[in-house]
């Protein structure tokens, strides 16, 4: 694998101010959606990002792509810093980084034909010369994602969820990007359709050499498609490691709890398995606990966890990093 990372994220944070009152607005706090995260993604690699709802996965995606300005920290795309970049300059890089959204129903304009949805990026970036090239590229990309090009004149409502997600993928790929962010691309789909989309994404990566940031809450799905996996909790990355390392030797108590909570579709295995249940609710992002953010729910928390926030530390030579005092 190439040693030069495609995406570098350094100490990235995104805080949202929270206001109260309609006439006399006053700031009552900050919501730390993403709090000091760092990671790298190498070309041709998939980094999986898992975590429970509200832990800041989607915000992280949006900030990495600079769809939202970051509060602090830096994102580099092939060595170029894109945070603080001027809009025009950023636009030049936009065609090399694209996103697939979670909801295949909400993310396609219902009044546009598939041809225009998929082709719009081409006209925005002025990449197609003449009508015939435009049509060629649209039908080429539709075929690539497994849709019949003759469907290009239809509207989104005529398609099923899985097909719509394919349209979303086609729209993202039409510009030949290097980097693709997949924000929960399969969680809105039926079980039998999920596998189709997962396989499609894996195939496309192989054929086009794409780099993915793959966000999902389903640990089994992430395991299937990722090379490395990062686990997020309340806006922070608590553990990051190679896939096999993370799933076979999870170190952080939160990762362990998540993995043991996922049911395995085999009753023989399930009878022998123990689910370690972590109780309690995910705290609000507004008032995160002092010390380690996980300590109120952690089964092995000690005094030090209540007072001192742990940082991500490498625990062995192969890039397995954990944020826990007790590892």
């Amino acid at each position: 694998m190439n040693k030069e990372p495609l995406i570098e994220v350094h100490h990235l944070s995104k805080h949202f101010p929270v206001f109260r009152g309609m006439v006399f607005k006053r700031k009552i706090g900050v919501l730390k959606a993403v709090d000091d995260i760092s990671f790298q993604i190498f070309p041709g690699e998939t980094l999986g990002l898992v975590g429970e709802s509200g832990c800041g996965k989607t915000t992280a995606c949006r900030v990495v792509l600079q769809l939202e300005p970051s509060t602090a920290g830096e994102v580099r795309f092939q060595g170029e810093t894109i945070t603080q970049m001027a809009k025009q300059e950023l636009r030049r890089l936009r065609k090399r980084m694209q996103i697939i959204f979670q909801d295949p129903f909400g993310s396609l304009n219902p009044r546009m034909r598939v041809r225009d949805i998929v082709g719009e990026p081409l006209s925005i970036h002025g990449l197609a010369r003449g009508k015939s090239e435009y049509a060629d590229r649209v039908s080429g990309i539709l075929e690539l994602v497994g849709l019949n090009p003759s469907m290009a004149d239809r509207y989104p409502h005529e398609f099923s969820g899985g097909q719509r997600q394919r349209i979303g993928i086609a729209r993202a790929l039409v510009l030949n990007p290097d980097f693709l962010v997949c924000d929960e691309p399969v969680s809105a789909l039926d079980v039998s359709i999920q596998a189709q989309i997962i396989n499609l994404l894996a195939e496309l990566q192989e054929r086009l050499g794409l780099t993915y940031l793959f966000v999902a809450h389903d640990l089994a799905v992430v395991r299937h498609i990722s090379h490395r996996v990062a686990v997020m909790y309340l806006g922070e990355i608590v553990e990051i490691a190679d896939r096999d390392e993370l799933y076979l030797r999870p170190q952080h108590p939160y990762t362990k709890a998540l993995l043991s909570a996922v049911p395995i579709p085999d009753p023989l295995i399930e009878q022998k398995r123990k689910h370690c249940i972590i109780s309690g609710e995910v705290p609000s992002l507004m008032e995160t606990p002092k010390g380690c953010k996980f300590h109120p729910r952690c089964p092995i928390a000690e005094e030090v966890c209540r007072n001192l926030r742990p940082t991500l530390k490498e625990i062995n030579g192969n890039g397995h990093r954990v944020a826990c005092h007790l590892v």
């Binding site: 596998a195 189709q196 299937h224 395995i264």
Partner: peptide, 17 residues
Amino acid sequence: SIPRLDQDIQQKLRPIE
């Protein structure tokens, strides 16, 4: 077609067409 936590990853998922 469902990805499983205990599965061999080399295996591709076999979706229902």
